[in-house]
């Protein structure tokens, strides 16, 4: 039995794309387009639903590595076409509830392209401080390093 823990964290990721904001926004705004990149690396996709409107929900579940069922459930709170998307989402790994987050995605024109800023504020729940995760620590680092090197 792992202990109960809550850790609050926030981070921001910024990217620039040559495509204009309307094209980048479109990649987030329909199930067909989003399925092309969001979670498209799943070993097996179990379910994907998307209702892209304020008050609408999105669900994605599948298995990635190790056969763990990952579930992503989102609720859209604010949508300004070509400019902004605000949604809350939570994640489960099998039956473990691992996080609840608020994500803000801002699309800004940058020359003829787009500056995309993803901000996430979340609470990360339990799970990370049990003995298993502790042992997993080094493996995680090496796995991550492998991916970084592969990507080079």
């Amino acid at each position: 039995m792992s202990e109960r823990n809550t850790v609050h964290a926030s981070f921001t990721i910024e990217r620039r794309f040559a495509a204009a904001p309307d094209r980048v926004f479109a990649a987030w705004a329909s199930k067909a387009a989003k399925a092309r990149w969001f979670g498209s690396d799943a070993a097996a996709e179990v379910a994907r639903e998307m209702d892209f409107r304020v008050g609408g929900r999105e669900h994605l579940s599948g298995t990635w590595h190790g056969g763990v069922l990952t579930r992503f459930d989102a609720h859209y709170f604010d949508i300004v076409p070509n400019q902004r998307i605000v949604y809350a989402y939570d994640m489960h790994l099998d039956d473990r509830h691992i996080s609840v987050s608020l994500a803000t995605v801002v699309f800004e024109p940058a020359g003829s392209g787009t500056r995309l800023v993803v901000s996430e504020q979340g609470v990360f729940l339990d799970g990370y401080d049990d003995a298993g995760s502790r042992e997993h620590g080094t493996g995680w680092l090496l796995d991550l390093l492998g991916k970084v090197l592969e990507a080079q």
Binding site: V7, R16, F17, A18, F38, S99, G113, L144
Partner: peptide, 30 residues
Amino acid sequence: LAEQWIDARRTGWQRQLDRLGEYLGEPDLE
């Protein structure tokens, strides 16, 4: 461990956005 957890999430985002760039048919400018 909390940092590992959060970095894993951050890395997840980076990978998603890499694929978004591929989907848009372009290398990232930055």
